[in-house]
Amino acid sequence: MISTPRSQRPTVLVLSLGGTIAMSAPSGGSGATPRLAAADLVASVPELADAATLELQDFRQIPGAWLEIDDIVAIAELLNQRAQSGTAGFVITQGTDTLEETAFLLDLLYTGEAPVVITGAMRTAEMAGADGPANLVAAVHTAASPSARGLGVLVAFADELHAARHVQKVHSTSTSAFVSPGAGPVGHVVEGQPRFHFAVPRQAPVALPQVRPASVEVIQATLGASVALLDAAAGLADGLVIAAFGAGHAPKTWAEPLGALATRMPVILASRTGAGSVLSNTYDFGPGSETDLLKRGLISGGGLEPRKARLLLLALLRSGAELPEIRDAFEFRRR
């Protein structure tokens, strides 16, 4: 690969949040924990010096499971500010447990044109076949590429590029754990260059700051499930997402309680299947059909899987949105 003169290299900000990509076990011990800083990750891949001028920031050093909504909001505010100052692109390294959720929430809040590429690893640096270095290389090359501008937040894993809107983690240990059901990767990294097959249209961002306290929970429909969790949610949550059967169905005993909840808070109807869309009027078998639930005031989540529907609703509530605006936002994203 031909080296680009330093003066011509784009500037890429690398934010390290911890996660498996930054984990190692103590000498002679077991049990990996986040120990590596951004400088350590970059030092392990010398070829990155030819890809971009890197700025490094250790934003967090924690497992992905410890990240909070406020962490991601703070990152969005930082990226929005830096994008206006001429930074060419951004790379975020983090734990894979919450990577798909970070990507989607950032995509809702980020307003810049500079690429944001999130990556991580399924294997720690000490394991045979560690995937972190290759994922980091792909992410930096993508973040530095003009062809990635305007595409919002992407996920780089196993030389595949996924849109935040569609990406999901579907395996607990495989190095190819990230896929985009129903869509496929938007591109691949080939010989250090991202090659895009299609683009996912960017949606209108959700407003910052995210300062209004809000709680949104996901309740999954299961065979013969009681209404106990629905009853509990009435006093605990500001919004609710129902991870429904199939195309948007729930036990018949849930229909009336869900209708009552929908008069008090936004209740989003999503599919627990992980792919495909909630329907609107195909099934009308009575209580618990999608036709029935939507008539009772539930809001269709369309093709958003439940965790991402939760993040959209949570971001809207935290921005101060009221029910009509929330309905419009979900309707817009179904188009």
Rank of each mutant, 00 (worst) to 15 (best):
V91K: 01
T87V: 15
V91I: 03
G184A: 00
H197D: 13
E113S: 11
V140T: 01
A74E: 09
R195F: 11
N135E: 12
M122A: 11
S176P: 09
A88V: 11
G184Q: 02
S145A: 14
V167I: 09
F157L: 09
D131P: 03
V170Y: 14
H166A: 13
A128D: 13
A88G: 11
S145I: 06
L108Q: 13
L105V: 05
V186L: 08
A134I: 03
G112L: 06
V179H: 08
G129P: 07
F178S: 04
G95F: 01
T142M: 04
Q94P: 00
L151M: 14
F104D: 01
G86N: 10
T87A: 15
E101L: 06
E101P: 02
G95M: 02
T93D: 03
A121F: 07
I75P: 08
T102A: 14
T173F: 10
Y110M: 02
V200Q: 12
V189I: 10
E191Q: 14
G95C: 02
F198W: 09
A138F: 12
T98C: 11
R123S: 08
V200P: 07
G150N: 09
V186R: 03
F196A: 10
S174K: 15
A83Q: 09
E126W: 05
D159L: 10
I75N: 05
A163T: 13
S145F: 09
L136D: 11
V189P: 05
E126V: 04
A83W: 02
D159V: 06
H141P: 04
A158W: 13
A138R: 02
G112N: 01
G152Y: 05
S180Y: 04
S85Q: 15
V153K: 00
A114M: 00
R165P: 12
E160A: 13
T98S: 14
G192T: 14
G182M: 06
F198K: 02
E101V: 05
T173K: 07
F90G: 10
R165N: 13
G120C: 07
F104Y: 13
N80S: 06
L99V: 06
V155K: 09
A125K: 12
R149H: 04
V155Q: 10
T142V: 05
R195C: 07
V189C: 05
A144V: 07
G132W: 01
L108I: 06
N80K: 08
T96N: 09
T111V: 12
E160T: 12
N80H: 08
V200T: 13
G89C: 03
L105K: 03
L108R: 11
R149G: 04
V200E: 15
G187Q: 06
L105E: 07
D159F: 07
A163K: 14
A125Q: 12
V155L: 12
Q84G: 05
F198V: 07
G120M: 08
F90L: 09
P115Y: 00
L106K: 00
L154V: 07
H171T: 11
I72F: 10
H197T: 11
H162P: 03
L106G: 01
E126N: 05
H171S: 15
F157C: 05
P185D: 01
G95E: 00
Q168W: 14
P146Q: 00
P115N: 06
P115E: 01
L136M: 11
